[in-house]
Design a protein around this nucleic acid. Structure first.
Length: 361
DNA sequence: AATTCTGTCAACCGCAGTAGT
DNA sequence: CACTACTGCGGTTGACAGAAT
């Protein structure tokens, strides 16, 4: 049995609030203040759930709220804070007076995320999309593409994850489909037939798959040479330059020598289950505490020791969010406050014990 | 003019944390 | 310690309006 509902759903009103309802709640709160929201509807004469009343007040009626458009300065701050702390909307909202977490979340989902993508920046990691593809190849130096199977930890914050939000990549089920049925890359026709509108996003799916594959092959060839060399292969290079959909597809067609039939690549490399992951029928893996610990260790092996990132105003960020060190960029966070530092300290205590490797150089 | 598509945003849902009993 | 109620949070939904076809 789950928790009982907070109110009798059949007797409460739902949907948009009327001006009369707004007036009632405003009148009640101006006389009694906020608190004990479950009692508010009854006392204010409203046929609403207390939770609904609280939401209406905090997200719309509160007198200190701004209802005008977001300013460019606010936009910058949201992007910077999201880059540093992710989708912790309430924390972000704490830095934008007069804005609610809901406001910011909506603005992010409808405007900012799209804007970043159009700029060739992955809105999840805030890194150039092309660089992420390249980094996946570089990670392959020790264990090519092993992170593709992970849904839950840091690597879900990449453009190559299988999360529904991120349509840049086929999900594991689809990769599994190719692995099981062809043991090969999908043909152009197969890619075109993929579900979920993968072909509608700015980056062509097939080209991406090829780019990932080539990065993997390059890393298998040499454990010393950087994977994405300047002239490693045309498709990966193109993806490094944030190519447009047509350019990338064209490049794939123009270089048939890189087609799957000429390589020993198999999709099973994407699908290796970690021994500590519980495989699920849908291809997902479950992260156990033991696995989390193991991943943290492996992550350090791959990326090196965790180092804090010195930001422009002297506060410290997390390399698991920004492993490239882009935080040193002047455009990065200006507004991180002590609360955020504490939050990072709590999550990544080891960050604060290390020297700053790349800043103040 | 009708229909479909897309963007926006208020509101809802379910979960987690916590305080009170 | 167990249970309940409350609050806060992030993800998601759906109504609506305007644009595109």
């Amino acid at each position: 049995m789950g928790r009982p509902p907070c109110c009798d759903k059949s007797s409460v009103r739902k949907g948009p609030w009327t001006p009369e309802e707004d007036a009632k709640i405003l009148a009640y709160i101006s006389g009694h203040g906020t608190g004990n929201w479950t009692a508010v509807p009854k006392k204010a004469g409203l046929k609403r759930c207390g939770k609904s009343c609280r939401l209406r007040w905090t997200n719309y009626l509160r007198p200190d709220l701004k209802h005008d458009r977001f300013t460019p300065q606010e936009e910058d701050l949201i992007v910077s804070l999201h880059a540093a702390i992710g989708s912790r909307w309430s924390l972000i909202a704490a830095h934008l007076p007069g804005r609610t977490d809901n406001d910011i979340k909506n603005y992010w989902n409808t405007k900012l995320r799209k804007k970043l993508r159009e700029m060739g920046i992955d809105p999840v990691t805030h890194r150039p999309i092309s660089q992420i593809l390249a980094d996946y190849g570089n990670m392959g130096l020790t264990n090519p593409l092993k992170y593709h199977g992970r849904r839950h930890h840091h690597y879900r914050h990449t453009s190559l994850n299988p999360e529904p939000e991120n349509k840049l990549t086929p999900n594991l089920g689809e990769l599994h489909h190719f692995n099981q049925n062809t043991n090969n890359l999908p043909s152009t026709q197969e890619a075109a037939a993929l579900p979920n509108n993968y072909n509608n996003h700015p980056w062509d799916l097939l080209a991406q798959i090829h780019a990932i594959k080539f990065a993997s092959e390059a890393s298998n060839c040499s454990s010393e040479t950087p994977v994405i060399a300047e002239n490693a292969n045309p498709v990966t290079k193109i993806s490094n330059e944030a190519a447009t959909e047509t350019e990338t597809s064209q490049q794939v067609q123009d270089y048939p020598e890189y087609s799957s039939s000429n390589s020993g690549f198999t999709w099973s490399e994407f699908l290796l289950d970690d021994e500590l992951c519980a495989s699920q029928p849908n291809g997902d893996t479950e992260l156990t505490p033991l696995l989390f610990e193991k991943e943290m260790k492996e992550e350090k092996d791959v990326l090196g020791p965790l180092h804090p990132i010195q930001m422009v105003d002297g506060v410290v960020g997390s390399p698991s969010i920004s492993p490239s060190g882009r935080a040193c960029d002047d455009s990065f966070v200006h507004g991180l406050l002590e609360g955020d530092r504490q939050s990072l300290l709590w999550e990544f205590p080891e960050l604060f014990d290390n020297p700053l490797p790349w800043c103040n150089q």
